[in-house]
Write a protein that binds this DNA or RNA. Structure first.
Lengths: 219, 219
DNA sequence: TGTATTAATGCATCGAATGTACTAAACTCT
DNA sequence: AGAGTTTAGTACATTCGATGCATTAATACA
């Protein structure tokens, strides 16, 4: 690695460190990008040279983590069910969270900041949504013929929705990292259990409903 | 209703109408709040007097819709299972979407704009997340002793995650409103079916795992 | 009719984010 | 080693969303 890249990473780290410190001291919204840059001894412009937006400081490992999940889905084992495949993908991603963000307390800080700063929360949830789309696409490619695009999106949405909500609730309760991880891993199963009795309305691919349950006399 | 409130609503409607029109013509990000206000014959400042933020123009019916779901959950029928309760709540909210946003094409427009404007997408997904929190709280109150906060959040996250992803995918395919509604209503069932085989790791409330499935020799 | 609300405006300001031109350092090639 | 090329970082200006504040004008109420 050349000296140029080393320096680049150094300034990036300096910015990230200053940002996290200031966020903890003064809160996310109360910390301006100008202050972060000044604390790191950089110009404001430089911050945006390294991070596309203010919140990206808190999302460093997001992309590689997503790639872990995508890789698992991409080489689906022969005969593996969709549930098993998603479980393995979740396992890989949660393990990464566990090693990186959970132990270091970064996840807890993120959750705490997000709980009080709606602006930040919006950005974080958006990333989750983008992650969801990519995973759904990968799942669709890995299971040709087995799933419609809509169905793939639905199941991935359910899994990530459950996992994220579980992690969020757990972190907000102040649970220790191990329990947060347990909640994340258990989330899809918990959700599936509780939803077992959900009324099946109609196959979304064949909307030939009779309208017996709804008062809308349409179609 | 007094004349004052009538006028207030009139300016609000004028702003909303101008905004939607401009969004369709030029795109969300390309339309400035100043332009919206000017097109409605108002000052820029007035816009923010009626809408807390730019994206709120597209989320007019969000709050009353959420209240519908909350009301259903609040008076849970005796002996009703959680799955049934959530199904009824979903039914109420989706019926409202169907009547208001789906028929009018507002939902389709929202989805189309969100697909191309990440900024808007972030805001919309954030609202979804806030909705999720309130529903989880209501569910927890409606089922005392049956659910932990974490479990309530998990199941609500799964349902809304599935429904939202289903709606999104369906709208993005250009499905007609009826099919979008069908996809939304079927989403929890579809997700539950596909997740039936999900490995149950451990009850998140009692993380007494033996660590047999994971390579992390912790605790 | 006189007084208190309050919707709406104008103005100033902050902060995030982007474009552009420029400097200085690091890389590359001979 | 030196000339030329790339590129990280800076300075400056600008756009736009959002908020605070003082003011105006219309409505509501007594």
């Amino acid at each position: 690695m050349g000296l140029r890249e080393v320096k680049k990473e150094r300034t990036r780290d300096a910015l990230a460190e200053a940002a996290v410190r200031l966020f903890q001291e003064k809160g996310y919204a109360q910390t301006t990008v100008a202050e972060i840059a000044a604390a790191a001894g950089m110009s404001t412009r430089t911050f945006f040279l390294h991070f596309p937006a203010k919140e990206d400081v808190l999302l460093a490992g997001g992309r590689p983590r997503l790639d872990l999940g995508l890789a698992v889905i991409a080489d689906r084992r022969p005969g593996e069910s969709i549930a098993e495949l998603l479980t393995r993908a979740l396992d890989a991603m949660v393990s990464d969270v566990w090693e990186k963000d959970l132990h270091s307390g970064l996840a807890a800080m993120r959750a705490q900041l997000a709980a009080t700063e709606p602006e930040l929360q919006a950005r974080l949830v958006h990333r989750l949504h983008a992650t969801q789309s990519e995973l759904a696409d990968a799942l669709l490619r890995a299971c040709p013929g087995e799933l419609s695009p809509s169905t793939a999106a639905t199941v991935v949405g359910a899994v990530l929705g459950a996992v994220h909500a579980a992690a969020d609730a757990s972190l907000r309760q102040g649970d220790p990292p191990a329990r947060v991880r347990a909640a994340m891993l258990a989330a899809p199963g918990v959700a599936a259990d509780l939803l077992r009795g959900t009324t099946k309305y109609v196959d979304p691919a064949h909307p030939t409903w009779g309208g017996t349950r709804h008062g809308h006399a349409s179609e």
